[in-house]
């Protein structure tokens, strides 16, 4: 690993009095690469992503210990502005969630939020983001239409365009293709491949073949712990841990 952008050190999380949901997670994310997090439902994958951009609510009963650093700085430091943090670390969810506004305004939304006033800059950035998200050709003639008329796959790419419009450093994708048909899924996977030359991407997926296809690094989570973390080829051809082996080969464990 040459240039880490995010380092997660001994991170534990509990939402309340119950068992902790994350246990001593150690993970170093390499810049401009794709890291996949795989694991059964409930193993804590989404919770981990939500920690990375501080989407986990800091309610009194929520306990987080350990640290996450972005470019060497703790994201939990008091001087961190959460809105700015989420601009640097964008997130896309399982179900496409376009805002009830036009295609154009969906992508422009984040730019306006961070105070961009120039119409020219906004137009440029919207086009650039839609192109990057491989959606431009499909929507360029109907930018003023409601986002809701797009197909599920198009909506997901629109949401990705919205996330990259504010030029984040990291993109967190939580099962970005699990509600999509196979062709739309391949488009998203292709997009992930295209985007990794500019962004650091973390993708949570319960589709193991998808993880094997899109990622450079892969982590297997089980009951809140990272069981194994390795380069994707090694993890999928020769895992070191029996629990990883059992999970990726689909065995009873």
């Amino acid at each position: 690993m040459t240039s880490p952008i995010i380092e997660i050190a001994d991170l534990s999380l509990s939402y309340g009095a119950d068992e902790p949901v994350l246990r001593n997670v150690q993970l170093t994310l390499e810049r401009e690469s794709v890291t996949a997090i795989i694991g059964a439902s409930g193993s804590g994958k989404s919770s981990l992503l939500r920690c990375i951009n501080r989407l986990v609510e800091l309610k009194p009963q929520v306990r987080i210990t350990g640290d996450i650093t972005l470019d060497g700085q703790s994201i939990f430091a008091p001087e961190i502005d959460v809105t700015e943090l989420r601009q640097r670390i964008g997130m896309v969810f399982q179900k496409p969630n376009p805002f009830p506004m036009s295609i154009f305004e969906n992508v422009a939304y984040g730019l306006r939020l961070v105070g961009e006033k120039s119409t020219r800059v906004i137009e440029q950035r919207v086009e650039q983001s839609l192109r990057l998200a491989a959606l431009w050709d499909e929507v360029k003639d109907r930018l003023d239409s409601q986002a809701g008329i797009l197909s599920g796959g198009q909506q997901q790419r629109l949401v990705i365009a919205r996330a990259i419009a504010v030029e984040p450093e990291v993109l967190l994708l939580d099962e970005p293709a699990s509600s999509l048909d196979p062709i739309s899924t391949l488009r998203i996977e292709e997009l992930i491949y295209e985007l990794k030359s500019r962004y650091t991407i973390v993708v949570v997926t319960h589709n193991m073949q998808q993880a094997a296809r899109v990622s450079d690094w892969a982590a297997f989570m089980h009951q809140g712990s990272i069981v194994e973390y390795d380069n994707t080829t090694a993890l999928f051809t020769n895992p070191r841990e029996v629990r990883t082996e059992d999970y990726i080969t689909g065995k009873f464990s």
Partner: peptide, 9 residues
């Protein structure tokens, strides 16, 4: 089946 790990090997 897209076998993985020991199945693939």
């Amino acid at each position: 089946r897209q076998p993985a790990a020991s199945d693939l090997r």
